[in-house]
Amino acid sequence: MRVKNTAIEWETGLAQQFDDLPQQHEAATLGMWVFLATEILMFGGLFTAFTAYRATYPHAFEVGSEHLYRWIGVGNTAVLLLSSLFVALAVHAIKHGDNRACTRDLVVAAALGVVFLGLKSIEYTLDIREGLLPWYHFHPEGANDAATKLFLVFYWFMTGLHAVHVTIGIVLLLFFAALCRRGEYDTEWHNPIEMVGLYWHFVDIVWIFLLPTLYLIKPG
């Protein structure tokens, strides 16, 4: 068995069960992709159920969609895309050994995540005022049949689950930004930055699907 110096291990980030950094990198990357596959199937269950009901009640779902604040949704899409850009820049920076730029980009990405949650909170507040919360003083204006309520159930459930993911992502981004600032990562060793980047892009992509699914049902 190879005996490894713990100081070197800490410095390089090589965990004891691996032979070398490339093997560890391969394992971490594959592990993250497998995890994201799990996540896709989890959201997939919701998208499937949503699609089944949308096919059954097309009109009621359009009505439900019209209650939503489309421009907040679109604006939030821009915010998330921009934050994904900064995560990509952070990964690029650390690959070139620029710790400062990497830290900065991660913090900016996290800040944009907070902006997303802020806008979402404003939207949720407006929704609740209009009585769009299915289990609390539910009284939307206009046509109000059971299926419209069903649409809103999925709206809250899907955007809520997504918001949980965004929150986790922000915590992770800030955590690894702090480690990056301490100089934990360099051109050789930056697995965690890449992995948190993959996760953040995933969170972004989920929203890219949520926007048309929920907000852009009716053309025009």
Partner: peptide
């Protein structure tokens, strides 16, 4: 993960009466 989200829907429907799987509410 599909089981997880399905049970989450069941739990949410049970606690909040959302009608996701309730024929009377369109589910």
């Amino acid at each position: 993960p599909v089981l997880a989200i399905t049970l989450a829907l069941v739990a949410a429907e049970r606690m909040l009466g959302l009608g996701i799987f309730d024929p009377a509410a369109g589910g």
